[in-house]
Nucleic acid binder design. Structure first.
Lengths: 300, 300
DNA sequence: ACGGACTGTCACGTAGAATCGGACAATGTC
DNA sequence: GACATTGTCCGATTCTACGTGACAGTCCGT
């Protein structure tokens, strides 16, 4: 007789993903249920919300209008459900995506603390360096390093990663230690390219407040941060690495920093999430925690 | 697993009335259900919303905070449920209260039209001249004639009733026809007093923009509009009647108007409802209809 | 043009939950 | 202190939402 909130949430998910199947996956429910829930919802409100061809789903104009309000209602309902939930009682699933090295070095080691405080939270941590589609894959939070393009997401700048120029001691012995960028003739660069695109291998640095760059020869191109560092340690050239990941290796003598006064511009670290300024509480908790965990390691 | 909207509505009603029994009555549900729903709600949100002594119910501070948001959520949910409901599909119960004569003369004769347009609406029409407690008795709309005191309700002025001075032809034959208030020596007033209070029987009129009054002798005091008119027709004195109810009797010769240039100040007609500016749709429909029905009969 | 894979829906037996009426203990009132 | 009233508990009953599996329709690539 009365509106069903679960059905409403199902509708919102389907409307966002434009797919019953994917919505069902993300909701952790069988397709049949989602289908039935939306059917019931349509019967209850007395309007057809989707036009279904067996192959594609589209919102009707009624559906569009309904979605706006349904979203808000679902959010407020979530708020109400959790307004008295202590941290121990907070439950739900939160799906996040992190760059591999940030995940392995910073986040995963401290995940136990988060679990201890919020035992009801089920965290799904995806680690990948490729650009994921936040809404399509249903992520609640994504940490991005570097410039970003998406604009429909809420972005919070956490800080930035200091970049250092590194090479192996072996490499320095062979190629010499440059003192200024002018000394780079004959040097080799390890090239990082996420998509093996056509970008030319360049070394960047900041000089007098300006970003300058110089094209260098390169032997190897990689597409993962781990391989990038490994190649540098192997003496395959100079690499511009985040200090965060390079520090240990410099300390332990596997890498040395070059041209310390000509570092590349720092990479911005950003926290993205698809919910507006007011996310569900379980998500907010994770966002805050991520910020707290990452902040000490990124210079503001 | 998810918040139950029916339970939420039950909670709101109980919180407003501070009684499970009365809430159950107004919701048209057995007490046991309301009790169980609220119990479930408390379990779901993880907090105790009421302090119950078997004799009295009070909101906890958590309950207070919850009520505010719960109200808003229930309202938005209602909005969502009815946003595509055609007039034929709109359903629900609306409880209104009207002065007896307005109900009998204007509203009830046209109730069939409302039903024809909104067959799903169940209207509960209470007719009474006493002042009802709008929230306590769960009215969705109340029409008041005359000055009003409540302020926590939303009030819409519909118009005002023209008042005329009437007497029976028999009375005029006996007592003479006054031309000005100064001629009223020896005349008799029929007195209306809702609560048989101590107000003195006075005849009021507007003269040069000022309200003036003159105390007169009276034989009978009544507390209902019908009895008031009946007393006047019976020749028991002059009565200050709304033209609306007196017109027919004047036309048919049972009453005559006296002192037409010294009429009493018109009585304001007001539509009250307890919902904020945004009432549920089924209520809004009735409010609009009442306004449309009453407007032509009340000069603005 | 046509197989193939994927989409959303349907069927139906089942399990769990909400519901109802009535009885009960507790409490404020006269 | 007796009474009336309040909110809750109890048991059987009814419903309805669910899951599994199979199905028909449609778009894609070749």
């Amino acid at each position: 007789m009365s509106l069903d909130l679960d059905a409403l949430r199902a509708f919102v998910k389907v409307a966002e993903l434009l797919s019953f199947t994917r919505a069902a996956e993300q909701l952790g429910a069988p397709k049949a249920r989602v289908s039935e829930q939306v059917r019931r919802l349509e019967r209850d409100v007395g309007s057809v919300l989707f036009t279904r061809t067996t192959r594609a789903v589209r919102l009707t104009s009624d559906g569009e209008a309904f979605l706006v309000r349904a979203r808000r209602l679902a959010l407020e309902a979530d708020e109400l459900e959790t307004m008295f939930a202590t941290s121990r009682a907070l439950r739900g699933r939160v799906r996040i995506d992190l760059p591999v090295n940030i995940a392995c070095d910073l986040v995963i080691p401290r995940l136990a603390e988060l679990h201890a405080e919020y035992p009801g939270l089920a965290l799904q941590v995806s680690t990948t360096d490729r650009i994921v589609d936040v809404v399509r894959e249903g992520f609640d939070a994504v940490v991005r390093v570097g410039a970003l393009r998406d604009s429909e997401l809420t972005a919070t700048r956490i800080g930035e990663l200091t970049m250092v120029n590194c090479a192996s001691p072996e490499y320095v012995r062979t190629h010499g230690r440059p003192r200024t960028p002018a000394d780079l003739d004959g040097h080799v660069l390890v090239h990082y390219s996420a998509a093996f695109g056509v970008e030319a291998p360049e070394l960047e640095w900041v000089e007098a407040g300006r970003v300058r760059s110089r094209r260098l020869h390169c032997i190897v191109t990689v597409n993962s941060a781990d391989a990038f560092r490994a190649a540098c340690i192997a003496g395959l050239g100079i690499a511009q690495l985040p200090w965060l990941g390079a520090e240990r290796h410099v300390r332990e003598g596997r890498l040395v920093e070059l041209l310390p006064r000509f570092r590349a511009p720092p990479l911005p670290v950003t926290l993205l999430h698809p919910h507006g300024r007011s996310a569900p509480r379980r998500v907010r908790v994770v966002l805050d925690w991520l910020t707290a965990v990452l902040s000490p390691h990124v210079t503001v």
